[in-house]
Amino acid sequence: MYNGEELQPLELQYKDYSEWMRGRNLESQRNYWKEVFKEEAPVLDLVTDYPRPKIQSYKGAQV
C-alpha cells in the first residue's frame, strides 16, 4: 500500500472461522459453566447511601 506494494491474498477469511466455530463441540464447556452457576447468586449487602427497601423494585430513572 505504501511504496506501491500490494497485499498478499488471504488464506483464511472470516467465513472459514465462523464455519469452524459452528462445527465445534462445546458440550464440556457448557457442562462446566452449568456446574459453576448451579447455585443462586448470593445477595450482596453493600453499603449504600440509603437503606435497602424490604421489597425489591426494578424502578429506574434517566438523567
Rank of each mutant, 00 (worst) to 15 (best):
K15C: 11
L26P: 02
E27I: 13
R22A: 09
Y2F: 15
G4D: 02
R52H: 07
L10K: 06
V63D: 07
L12S: 06
K34C: 11
G4E: 07
L10N: 13
K38N: 11
Y14N: 10
Q62M: 13
Q29F: 05
Y32L: 12
N31L: 15
E39C: 01
K15W: 02
K59E: 13
K54Q: 14
M21K: 14
D45F: 09
V36D: 06
P53V: 06
I55L: 10
D45S: 04
R22I: 11
Q13W: 10
G23Q: 06
A41Q: 05
G4L: 06
F37K: 05
R52K: 14
K34V: 13
Q62V: 13
L26D: 12
R30T: 11
D16N: 03
P9F: 00
R24N: 08
A61Y: 13
E11I: 05
L10E: 03
E6N: 14
L46N: 05
S28A: 06
E27L: 01
G60F: 04
Q13K: 02
Q56Y: 04
Q8M: 09
Y2I: 14
L46M: 09
Q56P: 06
L12R: 10
L46E: 03
S57N: 03
F37Y: 01
E5D: 10
N3D: 09
K38P: 05
G60W: 03
E40D: 08
K54F: 04
R30L: 13
K54V: 07
E40A: 06
S28M: 07
M1I: 02
V36T: 03
V43D: 04
K54H: 08
Y17T: 12
D16P: 00
D16Q: 11
V36G: 01
W33F: 05
S18A: 10
L44A: 08
K15T: 12
A41M: 14
T48Q: 03
D16E: 07
D45G: 10
